[in-house]
Write a protein that binds this DNA or RNA. Structure first.
Lengths: 149, 149
DNA sequence: CCCTACTTGCGAATCATTCGCAATAGCGCA
DNA sequence: TGCGCTATTGCGAATGATTCGCAAGTAGGG
């Protein structure tokens, strides 16, 4: 997941001028190793498995800093807790299965292009965008809703 | 904003089997007359101008019911408070001006169609979706950020 | 290796939203 | 038109997520 040169989350974090402390190293590594979209509580759980002394407030503070520096993305698929994902090298959107809570990523250059055109036509330049598509599987017997990602 | 027959928010509310009480009449009228995307606090402010006895908890309870019955839409553009808009007759997406907080609606049948295709290709059917495009005006001298909608 | 500004842990505080409960009031029906 | 059953309301307390204040600890430039 890291290029080998200087592209680990930790290195980019340091390059952004932020101090790399013990707790932060653990949090950064956990984020980098996660390929799902954990919320802060889940991140804290994973971090605690490595170093149980890290406080959840530190996790909150760290993800906040990471988002400010565009190193990770914050999502609010459902209301309630926010969820995060390691900064994708390439932008993508999300399918959220409403029955299971699972999140799938996808990307459509055509949709990106359309947005670009529309924004320009309205006199705007795009800063960022978010496309969440809530879906359900087809051709399946209805099934019990599970909990989350 | 109402067809004249039986299409006011209040009537659709009643038709959904919900009791039309005094407080609710005010809330429904306020929602119908709003063409922006107010949060609960703002709604309560507007409702209070008509009847100051209505409690904010009632506003919360009412918008919740309305959302459950698809009579209004809930948005969470920024984290923090949720914002609502009277149920649009036609789906649309949003441009959010990151400098001013203003929200503009737009619609693109092409984007809708692309989503449909993508979802189908992945074996999903779309339940709903949300496309928020955060933008900034172009060709303008930078200006101070204002507060909200 | 030292100094200083940045971080941390911890518990308290804050924000948005929901709940519990007793009092009140729609509205279908007699 | 009046009754009763049940949904709804106001209010304050409770909740859940996130942030803050502060004293103690530490990264890392010089």
């Amino acid at each position: 997941m890291d290029g080998g040169d200087g592209s680990t989350l930790t290195e980019r974090f340091r390059r952004a001028g932020l101090r790399v402390t013990g707790p932060r190293q653990v949090i950064l590594r956990v984020l980098e190793e996660s390929d799902d979209h954990p919320d802060v509580e889940e991140l804290h759980r994973r971090v605690s498995a490595v170093d149980p002394r890290v406080n959840i407030a530190t996790v909150y503070r760290t993800v906040k800093k990471l988002v400010e520096h565009d190193l990770i993305e914050r999502h609010s698929f459902d209301a309630g807790r926010a969820r995060y994902e390691a900064a994708p090298t390439e932008h993508h959107d999300h399918f959220i299965d409403v029955d299971t809570g699972e999140v799938f990523e996808f990307r459509s250059d055509e949709i990106e292009r359309m947005q670009q055109e529309l924004a320009r036509a309205h006199g705007f330049e795009i800063v960022s965008h978010r496309l969440d598509v809530y879906v359900r599987r087809v051709n399946r017997r209805k099934r019990k809703a599970r909990k989350a990602d």
